[in-house]
Amino acid sequence: MAELIQAKPVVAGSAKGEALVSQEPLSLWGGYDQKTGEIIDRRHPLSGQVAAGRVLVLPYSRGSSTTTAVLLEALRAGVAPAAILTTGEDAFFALAGIVAEEMYGSGIPILALDRAAFERLETGQWIEIDFDGTIRLGA
């Protein structure tokens, strides 16, 4: 039985993948290997996990303003997450999605969740995202 959540598409698109969830914000600069998609912030709970092709779920991006550039590089190299879900609109992630569309014709979906929806997501769940922001859980 699929469970549905409605999110706000910040940069709309469709995607599917396994969820990778953390309650800790993350800076992609110093936190995400743009050649492999590994989380490399050694102080972060997701350190060592590979987010490439997965649906990355974080409260927001922290720290460096280079986070956007790292995500654009990862998108170009094909090792970006399949989608990124945050609580509230995260401008840093959104910008990378927008610039990727402008530069390369395709980006990744970036969605904003409310806190209650965020709490329902767990690492390992299968997630499918529609263009309108509908999220199908655990199908």
Binding site: Q34, A69, V70, L72, E73, R76, V99, M103
Partner: peptide, 10 residues
């Protein structure tokens, strides 16, 4: 700041 091909292309 040069980060790779994408930032240079931009």
């Amino acid at each position: 700041l040069y980060m790779g091909e994408a930032t240079l292309e931009f």
